[in-house]
Computed example of a mutant assay.
Amino acid sequence: MRRFILLATAGACLLPGLAGIARAADVTADELMDRLKGVAPEAVLEYATLLHIPAEGDPQVVQEGTNGWTCMYPGTDPMCADAQAVSWAQAFMGQTEPPETVGFIYMLLGDEGASNIDPYAAGETADNQWVQTGPHVMIVGAGARPLYDTYPQTVPDEAGLPWVMWPDTPYAHLMIPVE
Rank of each mutant, 00 (worst) to 15 (best):
M1E: 11
R2W: 10
F4N: 14
F4T: 03
I5Q: 08
L6C: 00
L7Y: 03
A8M: 05
A8Y: 04
T9V: 03
A10I: 03
A10C: 00
G11Q: 02
G11P: 07
A12H: 00
L14R: 12
L15V: 00
L18V: 10
I21V: 06
I21R: 13
R23W: 08
A24D: 14
A25E: 09
V27W: 05
V27S: 11
A29S: 10
A29D: 14
A29L: 13
D30Q: 15
D34Y: 12
D34I: 08
G38L: 05
V39R: 09
P41T: 02
P41Q: 07
P41A: 02
A43F: 10
V44R: 03
L45V: 06
E46W: 11
Y47T: 15
L51G: 05
H52I: 05
P54H: 04
G57W: 03
D58Y: 13
D58S: 10
P59Y: 04
P59A: 10
P59V: 00
P59D: 00
P59K: 10
V61I: 08
V62G: 08
E64S: 13
G65Q: 08
G65F: 04
T66K: 08
G68Y: 04
G68R: 06
W69H: 07
W69E: 01
T70S: 09
T70Y: 08
C71Y: 06
C71K: 02
M72H: 03
Y73Q: 11
Y73N: 06
Y73W: 12
Y73R: 07
P74C: 02
G75R: 09
G75H: 05
P78C: 01
P78M: 02
P78R: 00
P78Q: 03
M79S: 08
C80L: 00
C80E: 02
A81G: 05
A83F: 06
V86G: 04
S87Q: 09
W88P: 00
Q90M: 11
A91P: 01
A91N: 02
F92H: 06
F92Y: 09
M93V: 06
G94M: 15
G94Y: 04
Q95M: 14
T96P: 03
T96Q: 05
P98G: 04
P98K: 00
P99E: 15
T101R: 14
F104T: 01
I105H: 00
L109V: 07
L109C: 13
D111A: 07
D111W: 01
G113W: 07
N116H: 12
P119H: 02
A121L: 09
A121R: 10
A121Y: 12
D127L: 09
D127Y: 04
N128T: 08
Q129K: 15
W130T: 05
Q132Y: 11
T133W: 13
G134Q: 07
P135G: 13
P135M: 10
G143K: 14
G143F: 14
G143C: 10
G143I: 14
R145F: 07
R145K: 15
Y148E: 12
D149A: 14
D149W: 12
Y151V: 09
P152T: 01
Q153G: 14
T154Q: 13
V155S: 12
D157L: 13
D157Y: 11
E158G: 04
P162W: 01
W166H: 14
P167I: 06
D168I: 07
T169A: 02
P170Y: 06
P170I: 01
Y171M: 06
A172V: 07
A172F: 12
H173P: 06
L174H: 08
M175Q: 12
